[in-house]
Design a binder for these strands. Sequence first.
DNA 1: CGCCAGATTGACT
DNA 2: GTCAATCTGGCGG
Length: 194
Amino acid sequence: MIILPQRFYQDRPDNVARKLLGKILVRIYIGQRLSGMIVETEAYFGPEDPASRARRGGNLARVMASQPGIALVYGIHRQWLLNVVAHPPGGVGAILIRAIQPLEGIDVMKRLRKVNDLRQLTNGPGKLTRALAVDKSFHGKPLYSKETGLWIEDYMNVPVSKVARSGRIGVTEDLEEPYRFYIVDNPFVSVKKR
DNA sequence: CGCCAGATTGACT
DNA sequence: GTCAATCTGGCGG
């Protein structure tokens, strides 16, 4: 298993969002491996992006401009959402991990989520953080190291023919270009759209 | 400290 | 399809 190195995230957010499809998100929870393959992501940019938290300033904007490869966790509607900071040197940006396909520790994840249906386990940004017991304590911690018990491993490269794009979900004001990436026909993608 | 919008989810018509 | 629970973070006072 190879943990994605920090330089993996030193690229434009849309490139990193695309590259993260097919990689594995791993969480060590009470000594056990919980994991899933990333099947859906969204790229967020700097202040020029109307849907980006970077526009609002404050701590989140600072973190989005800091070290690529660190986690950005923030709360909305009582859920935690997991992002990875990604941008070229001097840039601003982050990737929202919107859905994973469960691989390891499924029973534990079901217990944490209080659901039995595999399809419903991690097919949404708030659902997967709950299933992996990811919370604010990971905010600002590196995802390119085993230290914190949360990281992303290399796994497979998804061929271009299996990647689809759409506008970002749930945002009130989006950019012209579609910045949501997902694996075609994967049953764990959160919502169908266009 | 109060206000309030929001990258959601799940329950319900 | 609609809708509200529920809470974080930013900002104004």
